[in-house]
Amino acid sequence: MKLCDRLFNSSVGAKMLMAVTGLMLTGFVLAHLSGNLLIFAGAEKFNAYAAGLKSLGALLWVARLGLLGAFVLHVYLAVKLTAENRSARPVKYAHEATIQASFASRYMIHTGLMMAAFIAFHLAHYTFRWTDPSFASLPEGDIYAMVIAGFSSPAVSGFYVLAMLALSFHLCHGVSSVFQTLGLYHGNLNPMTEKLGPIVATIVFVGFSSIPLAVLAGLVK
């Protein structure tokens, strides 16, 4: 179909797919965060939430496959577009200068690849439970205890906090950028859309980091 070709193989279309998949991933990140913050409501509520998710059955798999598809497409296009961008300037400037591009915007592929590495570790850690042998002795379904055991290691917690820093930089540019990519730049809307990236980034960083830090500080046990 021509539409598919225009979306996948053109510069503007590929960027739109990046924006839409990026938004889907951001939606997941925010939903995941609000679920995770239930840890502050205590073991019972948190474990009930985890069990509730599991009981969704087929629906859960639809969501997982959708996310996986969005992720694969986002990463594939990110790598492809970045490679094209690099090759568009084979000779660099002897005197490089940046006039107004933000720090976050200049390291999107780096913070993105850090996220890919983090997601691999995160799945191995809490989803497949390969990395921490102590999880095997925990009672079945006690996700709360597993999270506490996992974050009791300062090295693991430190890694999570760093990864959330990378994610928040990615979203700082990404979320605001989506509006421009999808053609929603508008004089009346801009003051809000420009701030939305930094706001989402702050919420994501503070929200997610609070969990390992609270465990390390002994506030959640």
């Binding site: 510069s11 503007v12 590929a14 960027k15 577009l81 094209e84 961008n85 090759s87 568009a88 300037r89 940046t98 006039i99 107004q100 591009a101 933000s102 915007s105 200049r106 999107m108 540019h173 605001s176 950028s177 509006f179 421009q180 990519t181 053609g183 929603l184 730049y185 508008h186 004089g187």
Partner: peptide, 23 residues
């Protein structure tokens, strides 16, 4: 190359053309 919405173009444009046109 492809646009990454960093707006360096707008800052360098001698005719002050806005990135609104890119949207």
């Amino acid at each position: 190359g492809n646009c990454t919405n960093q707006y360096e173009c707008e800052a360098a444009c001698p005719k002050e053309i806005s990135v609104e046109h890119i949207a």
